[in-house]
Simulated assay, not measured.
Amino acid sequence: MFLNSSSPFKRLFLMASKPQHLHPIAEASVLTSTKKPRTMTTVSAMKDGFANYTDYLNQFNDKRERVVKASRDITINSKKVIFQVHRISKSNREEVLEKAEKDLAAVTSQYISRLVKELQGTDFWRLRRAYSPGVQEYIEAATLYKFCKSGTLLDLAEINATLLPLSDPSLEPLQINVLDYLLGLADLTGELMRLAMGRISEGELEYAENICRFVRDIYRELTLVIPHMDENSEMKKKMDVMLQSVVKIETACFGVHPLIYKISLRRRA
């Protein structure tokens, strides 16, 4: 269901830690050589290069600000989808999920599309920290909706497939990476824990038990994947929170069984 050394810098580090001496002959030639005066062509080229680099930095910073704004909008509107899903109950299930589906589609078409246009055809990994929070929230909302709709997990390939139509076919499309997907998935378990608590209070114990099994499966699979990831420090922190969610759901589900049994006995009497 999920994505199931010697250091290459060690030699460079050792070399850098030792004092480097020029060859005696080369050292003498350097000391005796006279400096050549800079020509106007050289100075002009340096100015042009500096101006071009300044323009590049300005454009990059402007793009970063736009990406941060797009990520913030994605976060805000993805949270609205999550809040909508939490309104689900026995009596309004179809109505709530239909509204959540429309809201999620609006997030994709209005806000994710803006992010895609900013990042397509670029080294979008350089701006990952700027857009990652929004992407994680979007993944959380989309996977929560999919679970409530069908009881299954929305995988990374399905999410990236929805982004392709938003991109210019002639440019490299924005594709969500595995780390952001897993970080969003870790946050999903917290929302599922809250959903399970709500279902238990409404007497939907079987639904809560399905959530419990689903969250437990996610946690078990991720414990097998995370140790093999290079950038897993943030993921390890979320794994601790995820375990707390698993324990809370299990405690609530197992603790309610005796109560249900007593109620059934009273009804029979």
Rank of each mutant, 00 (worst) to 15 (best):
I112Q: 06
S113E: 05
R114H: 02
R114C: 05
K117H: 14
K117Q: 06
K117F: 04
K117I: 09
E118Q: 12
E118H: 12
L119Q: 05
L119M: 08
L119E: 00
L119G: 01
Q120T: 10
T122P: 03
T122G: 05
F124L: 04
F124D: 03
F124R: 03
W125L: 06
W125K: 14
L127K: 00
R128F: 08
A130T: 01
Y131H: 06
P133T: 03
G134Q: 05
V135L: 10
V135E: 12
E137Y: 05
E140F: 02
A141M: 03
A142E: 06
A142R: 12
A142I: 04
T143Y: 11
L144G: 08
Y145D: 09
F147K: 07
C148E: 12
C148N: 13
C148K: 10
K149D: 10
T152C: 07
L153Q: 11
D155W: 07
L156F: 06
L156M: 08
A157T: 11
A157R: 15
E158Q: 13
I159Y: 11
N160L: 09
A161G: 06
A161M: 05
T162V: 08
L164H: 12
L164S: 10
S167A: 10
D168Y: 09
P169E: 13
L171F: 09
L171V: 09
L171M: 12
E172N: 09
L174F: 13
I176N: 05
I176V: 15
V178H: 14
V178N: 13
V178L: 15
L179G: 11
D180Q: 06
D180S: 15
Y181A: 03
L183W: 07
G184E: 00
G184I: 10
L185M: 15
L185Y: 13
D187T: 02
L188W: 01
T189W: 01
E191H: 00
E191A: 02
L192K: 01
L192N: 05
L192V: 00
M193C: 03
M193P: 04
M193E: 04
M193N: 01
R194D: 01
R194A: 00
A196Q: 02
M197C: 09
M197E: 03
G198P: 02
R199V: 02
R199C: 00
I200A: 00
I200V: 03
I200W: 00
S201I: 00
S201V: 00
E202D: 11
G203L: 08
E204A: 01
L205V: 09
E206H: 02
E206N: 06
Y207C: 04
Y207P: 03
A208V: 10
A208L: 06
A208S: 07
N210H: 13
I211F: 03
F214W: 06
R216T: 14
I218Y: 12
I218H: 07
R220I: 11
E221Y: 11
T223N: 09
I226W: 11
H228A: 02
H228P: 02
D230S: 09
D230C: 04
D230L: 14
E231I: 10
E231A: 15
N232H: 11
N232Y: 14
S233Y: 15
E234A: 12
M235G: 11
M235T: 14
K236N: 12
K236F: 09
K238D: 10
M239V: 05
D240G: 02
M242S: 10
L243N: 14
L243F: 13
Q244D: 11
S245P: 08
S245N: 12
V246T: 14
V247Y: 08
V247A: 12
K248H: 08
